[in-house]
Amino acid sequence: MADNILSVNQISVGFARRNIVEGLSFQLQPGDIGCLLGASGCGKTTVLRAIAGFENLRAGTISLDGQIVSSTSQQLAPQLRGIGMVFQDYALFPHLTVAGNVAFGLKSLSKSEAEARVAKMLALVGLADLGARYIHELSGGQQQRVALARALAPQPRLLLLDEPFSNLDVELRERLGQEVRAILKATGTTAILVTHDQHEAFAVADQIGVMSEGHIRQWGSPYDLYHEPVDRFVANFIGEGVLLPARLTSPQCIEFELGQLCRTTDVACCVGCDMEVLIRPDDVQHNDASPLKAKVLSKAFRGAEFMYTLGLPSGQTLLSLVPSHHNHAIGEDIGIELEMDHLIVFKT
Rank of each mutant, 00 (worst) to 15 (best):
220 G>M: 12
44 K>Y: 05
318 L>V: 01
202 F>I: 12
85 M>G: 04
137 E>M: 15
207 Q>I: 07
63 S>K: 14
167 N>H: 11
315 G>L: 02
22 E>Q: 15
122 L>F: 12
143 Q>K: 14
328 H>K: 10
152 L>E: 00
174 E>Q: 11
245 P>N: 03
194 V>R: 00
40 S>I: 03
95 H>R: 10
175 R>I: 02
2 A>I: 01
155 Q>H: 14
301 F>Q: 04
19 N>A: 14
335 G>M: 09
177 G>A: 01
242 V>F: 01
173 R>G: 03
26 F>G: 04
211 M>S: 05
296 V>I: 15
348 T>G: 03
101 N>D: 10
59 A>C: 01
199 H>W: 00
206 D>G: 13
4 N>K: 07
297 L>T: 11
113 E>D: 15
163 E>V: 06
249 T>F: 00
66 G>K: 14
167 N>L: 02
154 P>G: 13
216 I>H: 03
138 L>K: 13
267 V>S: 02
196 H>N: 04
31 G>I: 10
158 L>C: 12
278 L>H: 08
64 L>Q: 13
77 A>L: 11
37 L>Q: 09
235 A>Q: 08
129 D>R: 14
285 Q>G: 00
188 G>Y: 08
158 L>D: 10
343 L>C: 09
196 H>E: 02
10 Q>T: 12
207 Q>V: 06
